[in-house]
Amino acid sequence: MTQVRKKIILLLITLALAGWPAAHCLAESGPESATLDRLANLYEAVNFNHSAHVDITEGNCAECHHHTTGAVPTNPKCLKCHPGGQESDSMACQDCHSAKRFEVAYLTEIESNTQLYHIDKPGLKGAYHQKCMGCHQTTGGPTGCQDCHVRNEKGDEFFHAGNFSPAPVAHNGGH
């Protein structure tokens, strides 16, 4: 009995060790960094240090990429359809999270396609911010808007800040 149990444990350890480099390699195959410039009309592009975040998550790609890397999802609800082990065609955020989330075509698709389960998938900007901010808030990462993306001149104009700040009001309200 003990011999069998030992063998099983050894087998499990071997499998675990075999699986580890596989998962690790997958993470390593990701880009070193990525430039996020969707908000370039108001902010400077973000130079996202991908490899640093691989280290932070200790190679657990599912932390951000859900099941798309083939990792087993942590949420049991996701497991029902995504048991893990299947790598998706794309791992890029923008290929699932639409940058046109509220445009007519997208809204029509989620309304008319009754087979579609994910009718409440965040758009690209929402996905980035909810994921990044959600983690930064709990792990002590930067959470200020300009900690990640510095505003450009158009951004200052938009926010009426910097050179576009309103003249200070001496007294607010007359009462």
Partner: peptide, 24 residues
Amino acid sequence: VEACPQEVMTFGKRKDLIKIGNAR
């Protein structure tokens, strides 16, 4: 709605939004 970075606001048909809200 479009400016919100966090997608706090979801835009859509009112009847669909009720479904989404209940699902959340």
